[in-house]
C-alpha cells in the first residue's frame, strides 16, 4: 500500500547519504545546502504521496475536469508575468484577465464528485475470448473493495 511513498522516501534517503559525504571532501557548504534543499523537495513530495495514499488510497483517477480553460489561463498568466519582467511592469495590467478566468474556471470545470469519468471495465483476457466477469462477481468484488476502504479509514463496516 505505502510502497509508492517508500520508493520516494528511500530515494530521498539515498540523496541525503550522498550529500553527507560532501563535507568529507571539504566542499563549499553552498553545495551541501543546495543538495539538501533539493532532497527536501523530494521528501515533501514523498510526504504528499504518503498523505494521499492514507487519505484516498491507490487507484485510477476517477474525477476529471471536462475542459482545461484554466490551464490556458495559467499559461497566459505565466506569459504575461514573465514578459513583464522583460518589457516592463505595465504588462502586469493585463494579468487580471487570465487571473479571473483562472479563478472562475478552476472550480466550474470540475465535474461533481459523484460523477465518474467513464466506464472502467473489470479485467478480461485479451486474445482469448471468454465471457466477461458477471454482475454478481463484480458486485462482490466491489463490496469487498469498499469494505477494505472503509476499514482503512477506520469506519465501521
Amino acid at each position: 500500500m505505502t510502497l509508492p511513498a517508500h520508493v520516494v522516501g528511500l530515494w530521498a534517503t539515498l540523496n541525503v547519504a550522498l550529500t553527507l559525504v560532501l563535507p568529507v571532501y571539504d566542499e563549499w557548504p553552498f553545495a551541501l545546502v543546495l543538495h539538501l534543499l533539493a532532497t527536501g523537495l523530494v521528501a515533501a513530495f514523498g510526504v504528499a504521496v504518503l498523505v494521499a495514499v492514507r487519505r484516498r488510497g491507490l487507484g485510477p483517477q476517477l474525477r476529471l475536469p471536462y475542459r482545461s480553460v484554466a490551464a490556458l489561463a495559467t499559461g497566459a498568466l505565466g506569459l504575461v508575468v514573465t514578459l513583464s519582467v522583460v518589457w516592463g511592469w505595465w504588462l502586469l495590467l493585463l494579468a487580471p484577465y487570465p487571473l479571473i478566468v483562472l479563478l472562475v474556471t478552476l472550480r466550474s470545470e470540475r465535474m461533481p464528485a459523484d460523477v465518474e469519468p467513464g466506464p472502467l471495465r473489470t479485467p478480461r483476457p485479451v486474445p482469448v475470448d471468454r465471457p466477461a466477469t458477471n454482475r454478481e462477481i463484480r458486485a462482490e468484488a466491489l463490496e469487498s473493495a469498499h469494505a477494505r476502504k472503509r476499514a482503512r479509514r477506520g469506519e465501521a463496516t
Binding site: P60, L62, L120, R121
Partner: peptide
C-alpha cells in the same frame, strides 16, 4: 466509485 453498473449522469 469504480462501478459501471449504474449509468451515471455525466455531461455529454
Amino acid at each position: 466509485m469504480t462501478t459501471t453498473s449504474a449509468p451515471s449522469p455525466r455531461p455529454a
